[in-house]
Design a protein around this nucleic acid. Sequence first.
DNA 1: CCAAAAGTGTTATGCTTACACCCATGC
DNA 2: GCATGGGTGTAAGCATAACACTTTTGG
Lengths: 232, 232
Amino acid sequence: MSYIPSMAPLRAAVDIVIFAVTRGKLRVLLIKRGVPPFEGRWALPGGFLRDGEGLEGAARRELREETGVDAAFLEQLFTFGEPKRDPRGRVLAVAYFALLSPEAAAAARPAAGGDAAEAEWFDAHEPPALAFDHPAILDYALQRLRWKLDWSTAGFGLVPKRFTLTELQKVFEAVLGRKIDKRNFRRKVLALEVLKATKEQREEGLPRPARLYEFSADKFERLRERGVLFPF
Amino acid sequence: MSYIPSMAPLRAAVDIVIFAVTRGKLRVLLIKRGVPPFEGRWALPGGFLRDGEGLEGAARRELREETGVDAAFLEQLFTFGEPKRDPRGRVLAVAYFALLSPEAAAAARPAAGGDAAEAEWFDAHEPPALAFDHPAILDYALQRLRWKLDWSTAGFGLVPKRFTLTELQKVFEAVLGRKIDKRNFRRKVLALEVLKATKEQREEGLPRPARLYEFSADKFERLRERGVLFPF
DNA sequence: CCAAAAGTGTTATGCTTACACCCATGC
DNA sequence: GCATGGGTGTAAGCATAACACTTTTGG
């Protein structure tokens, strides 16, 4: 590992697939590139890894810079390294995916700046044409999200701190793209024993007010010990 | 993405966790480092990414260089990028894991060369002290392998082209570290409908000869279409 | 006939799915 | 009293897990 066959410059970028569910649909945050290559094209937010910065740290930084908020969930997805994937030279893309609550997504002011001329939320299932190999990255992130929903507590990252079971269900439906039976859904998530019912209810509204739940981190730990959760 | 905040040199290494099951145990191939840093320590085989080479291509090349054989299964694991993980400077490690059949593992002549003074198979559950952050990489690979065994066809990567059901079961047991019920195991793998019984039997031996099976790639495709398989 | 591994079914249990009605609230 | 979403139970089918004996072969 000390023999170095190539000294061609290499850079590493961290790209983030930022998901949120708003108005009943799964959205992804994209930026419009303000500089070449792919100037004017939509792309995943991202940037180069800096000196002394870890990969996850870089992802968090990008996320903050791009949205001004923190994600409930951030995890490494895959590293893309085709030699020609970036016309500027050799760039590895370490892709992350992040989940934002609707509150966070609303609070986010997707900031132009850096390479980004503008930033906007798109329907994640019908994205515009994307720069680089970002279509593949987005596809992969969608797959992974659908998968993890069933298995892990990732779904709770897309929901506000307090939420009704119907809201949670709508999030699952938006991600999976299909209807779920209400009774079965409730039975299943309650059986996980990671939800705490609060005393409060959704603010008085037109129909019957719903009970608010919140995610319980301590119960969650027990889940992990039982091996129910999926680390990847 | 064209603003470049840091020009400190960056390199990418591809490290491979090469598994095989031999004599009833899950083994991992390690090399003994012949050069600093960590000279004399055991480490995962790996090397620097070369110009014009894709990540998976680099992994395949390393694997060939290290063992002289091809893997039945190769997949990206995770990218490790702590700034201090390599004392020589900034090095990203893109980790892969590979599965070898016992035949391939036997045919492999783990070659010294490059940074490696020697190479040897170790019990994957009781590895020696490892260089760099390789303990974390190995742990992660073990987790992933256990996970994938259950619901992907990864397990077939650890078995010869033709194998008996008992051999397959022993492989599962070696990886999972527990006994499995013979009848349930057989029912389950046969229900997958990816195994073809061949006419042949294991060469005449002392006890009753067993039927040989082989993996059927076309049936496997149907499985994937049914969504039973897991892409990660 | 003995040793050694191959092969084979049934039952109980829990999980998943499908399915329909009453309830509480604001207007 | 009506419109709206909130909330609840049961039965069928399916997968999983536990469990023991007979068969084939070579020596």
